[in-house]
Design a protein around this nucleic acid. Structure first.
Lengths: 224, 224
DNA sequence: TGTACATCAGTGAACGCGCGTTCACTGATGTAC
DNA sequence: TGTACATCAGTGAACGCGCGTTCACTGATGTAC
């Protein structure tokens, strides 16, 4: 086959990262071999080490790309739901729970195990933490925007944090136990909690379970 | 060494499961070898297949034991905090966030990745789902008890579900990103949300962040 | 613009290591008489 | 209770396979003149 042009090589490298990122999200980092990645990218294993120092380096880049994609998707959801009732936050939660192909599952969840057994000073660990922070920033902005639209004051940080934790927790539980009647109720509960904006200074009524979420988001499985 | 007595063999088998359960919780199922387990149990690898059909079978039993231990610990926390203010639920959350040795980390989190890539009809997957259900039952009972003590009506299921999701989510985020100022605020926010019982029919005031949690639970890392 | 040569992206096979599993063997335990 | 034999928990080495990594080789690309 001979040498590839510089442009071609750069293109190939990017494809390897993209393919790896998708495979890692879908099957978990540890369940994907380099041969599998290179095969999916249309290359042979030997070529890998011409572009990357080690498997570890690829994991780091794949993490970064996956979080970028997820954050971009969240941004897009926010943009599309700007004018929607009951607000961006509930829209984000509905998006998060929407069923999607495994290769687009939430990187925060897909990589969490890997992240927590990484040495503290590992690059990939920092990339993961940065990715989580970026997603939370999106979430927080959506919460602010939702409150503003409702004419309420900026939501207290504690409320936003608890809502974010609930979103991620429900995603994890759905992912780990599979979609059931219970996980659907779990998701509806989390979506409702977003829609309520319970701490809003305008004394949001402690409404009984809205049926909104149940109508709109009967889907499952976490995502970006 | 020769043959061990039936009682000794049963004892050995139980020790293998216990040791495996602890190691799996601490390091993740996939990062522990059979040799490591048998070594820790004071036996050699060859003996393993006299007691278990396969590694998979051990994983299933280890899951069950870990969830049993966790559920028992939750029960104990509930018993000890029965008379406490602001209630069992917040006590459970404080317990959940308390720093502990890795071999006692929350099985729901420690095994979540493994669980979600298991075939749907796998025994271990069912054991995992059962374990999650058992922990949620404990949580729900604590929520009921907390409401009853406060003279409030039975909390709506949606509230309990969202609180449980928040607990697990905060645990996951702490585990995956390591303890930071952000994760401590996250935990405090979740604990406060428990203490508030925001949906209680007695119109709980939408209090500003209580400082209670911040005083009492400045620890980290999830657990049983 | 052409020519000669060095570079290096990609190939495909081989290496080395770790891990789950198997197996022949040992000798105390359990059982039948 | 004692004796003879079958059972089988535990041993330690070997097997087989998969995977990350290395390496000699190829030939188009890029560069120097």
């Amino acid at each position: 086959m001979g040498r590839a042009s510089r442009a071609q090589a750069a293109h190939n490298r990017a494809r390897v990262v993209a393919v790896a990122s998708a495979l890692f999200r879908a099957k978990g980092t540890e369940n994907v071999t380099l041969a599998e990645v290179m095969d999916a990218a249309g290359l042979t294993v030997g070529a890998f080490y011409k572009q990357f120092d080690s498997r570890e380096a690829l994991v780091d880049e794949a993490f970064a790309l996956a979080f970028d994609h997820a954050a971009t998707a969240w941004k897009e959801v926010r943009r599309r739901s700007e004018a929607e009732a009951p607000g961006e936050l509930a829209a984000l939660a509905r998006h998060y729970f929407r069923k999607r192909p495994p290769e687009r599952s939430c990187p925060l969840l897909a990589f969490s195990s890997e992240a927590c057994q990484l040495p503290r000073d590992d690059e990939a660990a920092a990339t993961y933490a940065g990715g989580v922070a970026a997603l939370f920033d999106q979430f927080k902005a959506a919460a602010s925007q939702t409150a503003a639209r409702a004419g309420a004051a900026e939501p207290p940080e504690a409320q936003v944090l608890a809502q974010f934790a609930a979103l991620i927790g429900a995603g994890l539980l759905t992912r780990a136990t599979g979609s059931t009647a219970w996980t659907r109720r779990l998701q509806s509960a989390v979506i409702d909690a977003m829609a309520e904006g319970r701490h809003s200074t305008r004394a949001a009524p402690a409404a009984p379970d809205s049926t909104l979420a149940r109508r709109r988001a009967p889907r499952h499985s976490p995502d970006p």
